[in-house]
């Protein structure tokens, strides 16, 4: 499955300004194109992780779902996709707690937030 951005839904796809400011602080005059590199990396990585999530859900691999959520939790927080990060945290917690009944629904939410974050990133990278 190839997730596609939902253009109708980009009203909530704002990246956290504080997080973006921290990224900017790493390269204040933009000489190294840090923000662009980070966001591009996030884009690539997010696409891959969303595919992996989809796959893991198909196979019913709860642990794998938890691990991907864990990774995505911190990288999404880093670029300011806070809503995505929050869902990731919820999925990771649920997996660790063994609460698998709601998991499919949660992963759906996660994928939805992922798509929105992807949109937000692309909006910055390719305005």
């Amino acid at each position: 499955m190839n997730p596609t951005p939902n253009s109708n839904d980009d009203s909530s796809a704002q990246l956290d300004a504080q997080a973006l400011a921290r990224l900017h602080a790493l390269d204040p005059d933009g000489r190294h194109g840090v923000v662009g590199r980070v966001l591009a990396t996030f884009e690539t990585s997010l696409l891959r992780q969303m595919a992996q999530l989809d796959e893991a859900r198909e196979r019913g691999e709860a642990d794998e779902l938890g691990r991907i959520a864990h990774t995505l939790k911190s990288s999404s927080a880093s670029i300011g996709a806070l809503a995505l990060s929050a869902v990731c945290a919820e999925v990771e917690r649920a997996v660790r707690a063994g609460e698998t009944t709601e998991l499919v629904k949660d992963v759906d939410r996660l994928l939805a937030e992922g798509r929105r974050a992807l949109g937000a990133v692309r909006a910055i990278l390719r305005p």
Partner: peptide, 8 residues
């Protein structure tokens, strides 16, 4: 393993 974090 997270490229974003690694980069940052």
């Amino acid at each position: 393993d997270d490229e974003v974090n690694l980069l940052l």
